[in-house]
């Protein structure tokens, strides 16, 4: 019996629940509910972790040939994506002692898992030759750490826009959101973190491609889109630093950057074809 996907579908709902409680606590300013939301999110994270570990174990139970670290296809990478989003936003929450980010970030984790559950093939498959590489594992982990940081930065940027709009409006609702300067700083830190890991992800991907397909770079759509994303965030870092861009404009750029991330991950698979549509890797 395979339990990991069952656990993971339950976890999807727990993340959703956490998101709803966060939102409730935020709108009605209930400190107790916010604490509850954190605990629910922690439970979801524990479940998510258990799902990943179980999938790992169960892949070996299916036979030593089938066993592999669960970072090798769309489904598994999305599960890991949700996990990293949860870890990052809980860390940010603790560090900045503010429980509003979860209202934006927990739904993202829920969406990632929900989307994962639509994957046509959730079963554990043995690895085809091209995927048997430690560089692949490094590639998936670094990419998704980067993507998750960008996702949380996206959530923070949304908060920023909400707050800055609210401060300008007449009916200043004094939403319980951290000060704009902190949100801005937080976006910047998250983007730096994401940029580092996206860079590492592109590099590990290149090294893997070199070994499996002889070329470190072949301009296939997925590679190109990750480079486009990288250019966007590089431009953002420079704008912020030299032109002193802050606030709204940086928040908008961070949202555009995350859209590019989404396209790199989902759009390319749907609309463009290339080496990376995992299924096609079998050569």
């Amino acid at each position: 019996m395979i339990y990991n996907s069952l656990i993971l579908s339950i976890v999807t709902f727990i993340y959703g629940l956490a998101g709803v409680i966060y939102l409730f606590a935020w709108i009605f300013r209930k400190e107790g509910a916010a604490k509850l939301a954190t605990w629910v999110a922690v439970i979801a994270l524990v479940g998510n972790t258990a799902g990943i570990v179980l999938r790992w174990i169960e892949s070996y139970q299916l036979g030593s040939e089938t066993g592999h670290a669960p970072f090798s296809n769309m489904y598994e990478s999305l599960v890991f994506f949700a996990w990293t989003i949860a870890v990052l936003f809980l860390l940010v929450e603790k560090r900045y002692n503010n429980r509003t980010i979860g209202a934006m970030a927990a739904p993202l984790a829920c969406l990632a898992l929900a989307y994962a559950s639509f994957s046509p093939d959730k079963s554990i498959q043995p690895l085809i030759p091209a995927l048997k590489s430690n560089w692949l594992i490094a590639h998936v982990i670094t990419c998704f750490l980067g993507y998750a940081a960008f996702a949380v930065a996206f959530a923070v940027s949304l908060l920023y826009l909400v707050k800055s709009k609210d401060e300008k409006s007449e009916s200043n609702a004094k939403l319980h959101i951290p000060p704009l300067s902190i949100l801005d700083e937080l976006t910047h830190r998250l983007v730096m973190f994401g940029f580092l890991f996206l860079t590492a992800g592109i590099i590990t991907g290149a090294v893997w491609a070199k070994q499996a397909w002889t070329r470190y770079w072949s301009w296939d759509p997925k590679e190109t889109w990750s480079l486009i994303t990288w250019f966007i965030y590089a431009a953002m870092l420079h704008l912020r630093m030299m032109r002193g861009w802050r606030g709204n404009r940086i928040a908008v750029l961070s949202i555009i950057g995350f859209l590019a991330v989404l396209f790199t991950y989902f759009g390319v698979n749907f609309w463009l074809s290339g080496l990376h549509s995992y299924g096609a890797l079998s050569q």
């Binding site: 250019f231 966007i232 590089a234 032109r243």
Partner: peptide, 8 residues
């Protein structure tokens, strides 16, 4: 910045 956006 212009170059980076153009390349993207």
């Amino acid at each position: 910045v212009v170059l980076l956006f153009c390349l993207a």
